[in-house]
């Protein structure tokens, strides 16, 4: 399959919805296939790449930090960017600026950037296909 440019819009906040698990699985497949990927992180999804997320232990379950091995979405975003690069693709991950400001999550992991819905329009115009994953 020839390289494609695919856009995915996300709206769910971290740690709240199975939609994000599925979205990251779809993005992972696209990255492994070497496609160029655009992600527009809107509304709650603007916090996915927030750099100050921290893993934590789970004292209720008696697990320390390493044993808990808590996944953070910021690490998943970084891993997605790395996977795409390994396979000859690239990820342009845009965090909605107003959504970011509202939530105070303006510090992003490297390789993602601030933008606006105008970026989503540009993504759609330049993409072979687009998938919007809305909140429920």
């Amino acid at each position: 399959m020839a390289k494609r440019t695919l856009t995915i819009a996300l709206m769910d906040a971290p740690y709240e919805s199975a939609n994000l698990t599925t979205a990251f699985r779809i993005l992972d497949v696209a990255a492994r296939r070497g496609h160029d990927i655009n992600v527009f992180a809107y509304e709650g999804a603007a916090a996915l790449a927030f750099a100050r997320q921290a893993a934590h232990p789970n004292p209720v379950h008696g697990k320390n930090l390493a044993e808990e091995n808590h996944p953070t979405t910021k690490d998943q975003v970084a891993a997605l960017l790395a996977e795409a690069a390994r396979n000859g693709g690239k990820v342009d991950w845009v965090n909605c600026g107003m959504c970011v400001d509202e939530r105070g999550v303006g510090e992003f992991v490297d390789g993602t950037r601030r933008g606006s819905p105008a970026d989503f329009q540009a993504f759609v115009d330049a993409s072979d296909n687009t998938l919007v994953i809305p909140t429920k």
Partner: peptide, 17 residues
Amino acid sequence: AIDVVVDHLEAGSRTLW
């Protein structure tokens, strides 16, 4: 497999969630 979604995106299918 979830790969089906990417197969369809690659092929230009109109994809709705």
